[in-house]
Design a protein around this nucleic acid. Structure first.
Lengths: 191, 191
DNA sequence: ATATATCCTGAACCCTGGTTCACCTTGATG
DNA sequence: CATCAAGGTGAACCAGGGTTCAGGATATAT
């Protein structure tokens, strides 16, 4: 068990600055944001990026991981609110809306991620989010608002197709159009 | 009026082969499909591509234009069917489904298009499609199936967010989830 | 204070992929 | 057929951007 020496203080600081800068740059300039630009924005040299993240793909994956963690937090907070008495269907819709809004900021991140075939960063956070959403759905079904056959996968599906690159009005409209599909009354007869 | 000489026969043939090959290659390998590969697939040299399309963006735009034309045809055919007595809502949903399925084939084309900021190829075809869809919506609203405030823009919005990169089952499910949003009964109260 | 392993720097490297161009081939015209 | 412009060829060119690496700087342990 060779206890590895703790990382240097400035290294930790830089890592954070890099992650932040990467998020901003990718958000601003899309997946095309260059390593050089990210480095500059972080006030660091390119080589430093590569010390922390062996490849651009890894860097993007790390950014995505952060994002997923935030979503997981939101999901759990939402679930808590429902447990405290809020209507599940409404909270779920609002949650979807928030995640999408947040996704606008991190818009290109999503694109960059799959443009590079980034693999999941933190499985744990993903699971946290999934579990919370599942509970949210169950609650809504118990309350009778949400259609019985709705699953977590459906939420993922909707989220992954959200128009993050459209203006706010369009995003709101989209939510209005899509939300009814989750309700129990609204489903048309399936073939 | 210098009457320009008619294009050579082989040139026309090649242009078609290139367009076809470009469609296939982009579909298969995403926007990353190289000009070299497209040329090879078309059984033609790179230079020939550039004779017909001054830039890769132009080539992609041309492919998109073809695609749009097909969609316009479909839209008009659908409209004709409704005029002949078919239920508008059902036809519209089916139309959306078909377009999405077709879009899977041309999946990356869409991506490539906006990755290069491709400008509309044939405004005329776009208008044809728009007009037909608008008529379809009106018909559905008259029949009472489609919600009064649904517009052509909504259809575009939904279409542009279709999960073309998901497996068939997911695409079908998506349609099931989304369709209710268009119906008149299903809309929840708006804020 | 000194030593040393960790970390940072940034110019240079290199590979990928779009684009060009000088030269050859071929379909159409008279 | 003869002629020639339209069309085709593909090796070479070039820019952009990810990646490397030899050398300098600095935090931490003794």
């Amino acid at each position: 068990m060779t206890q590895a020496r703790a990382p240097r203080a400035d290294a930790v600081r830089n890592r954070r600055k890099i992650l932040a800068a990467a998020g901003e740059q990718i958000t601003a300039h899309g997946p095309g944001a260059g390593m050089d630009e990210i480095a500059a924005a972080a006030g660091v040299a390119v080589g430093t990026l590569y010390r922390h993240f062996p490849t651009k793909t890894d860097l993007v994956a790390a950014v995505v991981a952060e994002y997923v963690a935030r979503v997981a937090d939101d999901a759990e907070a939402t679930l808590a609110r429902v447990a405290a008495g809020a209507r599940a269907m409404d909270e779920l819709t609002a949650f979807l809306g928030r995640v999408i809004e947040a996704s606008v900021t991190d818009r290109a991140v999503k694109a960059a991620a799959q443009a590079l075939g980034a693999q999941p960063g933190d499985r744990a956070d993903e699971d946290r989010a999934g579990a919370a959403v599942a509970a949210l759905i169950r609650a809504g079904q118990t309350e009778g608002d949400i259609h019985p056959d709705v699953t977590v996968g459906d939420i993922y599906l909707l989220f992954s197709t959200a128009p993050t690159d459209q203006p706010p009005a369009a995003r709101a409209r989209w939510l209005t159009l899509v939300a009814p599909g989750l309700t129990s009354q609204a489903r048309r007869a399936e073939s």
